[in-house]
Amino acid sequence: MSSQPSPAPEAPALSLTERRKAATQLDIARAAAELFTQYGPDGTTAEDIARRAGVALRTFYRYFRNKQDAVGPLLAAGGDHWRALLAATEPGTALPKALERAVREALSAPDAHAAERLEQTRTLLRAAVDDPALRAVWYRVNQESEEHLIPVVARLAGTGADPLETRLTAAAATDAIRIALETWAATDAAADGPGSPAELAVRCLRQLMGGLCPLPADGEN
């Protein structure tokens, strides 16, 4: 695959209405995650979430089908962040290195705020084990993330890239992060260091992509 990506296309600017909608959805998602952490999905109602978010119940249902669906924007935020990191990769960087760097940075916990976000994800993934509706939201978020990742990978791979290989790369990278987070969530490992999401995701990425293209060894730039 070519390692000379073209410049990333500029994303269209959101309108004021779209920004307000996204902000409201994220406020509701945070409220839902907080309540799920405190009381679990079974102990939380849509009314509870709307009240915590400071919105009317009809506003809640304007954006979300059910209480589990409400955490979707929060779970999707991580994927948005790592795709943005990948899209901003310096031109000329080999795709395998770009993927690994983006994964490491997106799942690292350099401060308390980042660690708190990961812990919140862990709580939601643990709850999803026994909640099919919440698990369905998690799988949907990952599927959408994979679809959004394909054009980013295609740009970095270059004009001569095989579309099938591009799609497989996007699937492998998405699954590496999903499996790493699910594995970490089932443990009590810290958000950084051995057994952390970043460490596990790099391991998964190297295993899943080994047949596509060689990944850098530890310590390589």
Score class of each variant (00 low, 15 high):
A29P: 04
L212Q: 02
L16D: 05
E47F: 03
A31V: 11
L212R: 07
A46D: 08
K67I: 13
A191V: 04
T121H: 06
R140A: 10
R62E: 09
P96H: 06
Y139K: 15
P110L: 03
R203P: 03
L26R: 12
D111A: 04
A198Y: 00
I150P: 00
V55Y: 01
R167Q: 10
P194A: 14
Y61F: 15
G219K: 07
A112R: 12
V55R: 11
L205E: 09
L205P: 04
A8I: 05
V103W: 00
A106S: 15
A217I: 05
D162H: 07
S108H: 11
V153I: 14
P214D: 03
E90C: 04
L107V: 07
G72H: 07
T17W: 04
A115T: 09
R178E: 02
A53H: 10
L75M: 15
T187I: 11
S15F: 06
R155W: 01
A98Q: 09
D188W: 08
W82R: 13
A157I: 14
A94T: 11
R52F: 02
G54Q: 01
P73L: 11
Q120D: 00
G54V: 06
P41C: 05
E34K: 15
A191R: 09
D130Y: 06
A190V: 05
A112V: 10
D69S: 06
D42Y: 08
T24H: 10
R140L: 11
W138L: 12
L85E: 04
A170G: 06
G79M: 11
R135T: 01
A127H: 15
W138C: 08
Y139H: 10
A136M: 11
V103D: 02
E220M: 10
R167W: 03
Q38G: 01
A11S: 13
R20I: 10
A46P: 11
A76N: 03
A22D: 00
D42Q: 10
A46F: 07
L16C: 03
R62Q: 05
A33R: 02
Y139I: 12
G219R: 12
R126Y: 03
F64N: 03
T37N: 10
E116L: 14
R178C: 00
E47I: 00
A157N: 12
G43Q: 05
F60L: 07
A46V: 13
L16G: 13
P73G: 11
A180E: 00
L156D: 09
E165T: 14
